[in-house]
Amino acid sequence: MKIDRLVSIILILLDKKRIGAQELADIFEVSPRTIYRDIDTINMAGIPVCSIPGVGGGFEIMQNYKIDKNVFTTTDLSAILMGLSSISNMIRGDELVNALAKVKSFIPADRARDIELKANQIYIDLSPWTGNRNIQVYLETIKTALQERKLLSFEYVDRFGKITTRKAEPYQLVLKGSHWYWHGYCHKRNDFRLFKLLRMSNLQITKDSFTPRDYKKPQIEFDDILDYMQTTIKIRFHTSVMERVFDFCTHENVLKDDDEHYIVNFPFIENEYYYNILLSFGEKCECLEPLRIRTEMKRRIHEIAAIYESRKN
């Protein structure tokens, strides 16, 4: 494709001091006339390519336009490659591929091995182990809508299980913890909302464009709120679930009880989300104190048991 050839020519020109039309034609298996047309296109795109006539002549990018490779240290290039590679696991696109190619073009041959080793020292994979396989497709859809300023339509399940049909203006993709969200202006609620991708279905880009409105960032930092909402409760956990327990607290909050149990000072907020966390541990978890939370756990367990006892089969 022509666009691929143009990008490749630019990368070659960034890498080399000067290269002739015939050499480029041989590399891409096209005629020198095609190369000249490509160079004109690159110039029209705003990248200043000079043509030097005579023996030893050829094409080169103006020196003031080039970035000195030595500007980037080994650590700089490793960090950039690591970040771009991690994002490309979930969000794919020509711009990321081209960005990776451009960054790699800055790597001097004598430092390539060292930079590759450093870039591979940390690997970030944002794709889920299991679950909703639409996430990656939805990310691409939202990214396209962001670029084209198109409304998104979708069905959304709120925290009470109610399904509604929505239309919203996308403004930002957000990765918080291990979950993807997008922030947009919801036409149904007439306000900005943070939508969780796992709660969405039938996501589509509409034909309707929108004019961006004054944007306010979503509140995704809750440290101040947690300081006054969160309390600590005492829980007895079986050793078999301790790996999960450490998703919520640190080792400093854990004391050995006996060979098979630990006593944990567990961070807790009295709402559905946190009660469901405790219930998800099943019989491997016992709330010891405070009494009101222990009593509430007993009530919820009895309600669950009553559902099963109401059916004989």
Rank of each mutant, 00 (worst) to 15 (best):
H179C: 05
G177F: 04
K188H: 13
S153L: 10
S178I: 06
Y185T: 00
K162C: 11
F160N: 13
A168N: 00
Y156E: 10
P170D: 01
Y181I: 04
Q172N: 08
A168T: 01
V174L: 06
L151V: 13
G177L: 05
T165Q: 06
D191G: 15
E155R: 13
D158V: 07
F160D: 15
F160M: 14
I163R: 08
G184C: 03
V174F: 03
R193F: 02
E155Y: 11
F154S: 15
R159Q: 14
W180N: 06
H179P: 01
Y185M: 00
C186R: 08
R193T: 05
T164N: 06
H179E: 07
W182N: 09
V174W: 04
A168F: 01
D158H: 13
L152W: 09
N190Q: 13
H183G: 00
C186I: 06
K162R: 15
W182H: 11
Y181H: 04
A168E: 00
N190C: 12
H179D: 06
T164R: 07
R193L: 08
D158G: 11
T164C: 04
L152N: 12
L173M: 10
H183N: 02
Q172Y: 01
S153M: 11
R159T: 14
N190T: 15
Y185W: 00
Y181K: 02
F154Y: 12
K176R: 09
F160R: 14
S178V: 07
R193P: 08
K176Q: 09
I163W: 03
K176I: 08
H179Q: 07
H183M: 01
Y181R: 00
E169H: 03
V157H: 09
G161E: 01
P170V: 04
R189G: 09
K188L: 14
L173R: 06
G161C: 00
G161Q: 01
L175H: 11
T164E: 07
K167V: 13
F192N: 04
E155H: 11
D158N: 15
P170R: 03
L152G: 10
L151F: 12
K188R: 13
Q172C: 07
G184Q: 02
H187M: 14
V157S: 10
I163T: 15
G184K: 01
F192S: 04
R159H: 12
L152F: 09
Y185C: 00
T164H: 05
T165C: 07
L175Q: 10
E169D: 01
P170A: 04
L175R: 08
I163L: 13
G161V: 01
H187R: 14
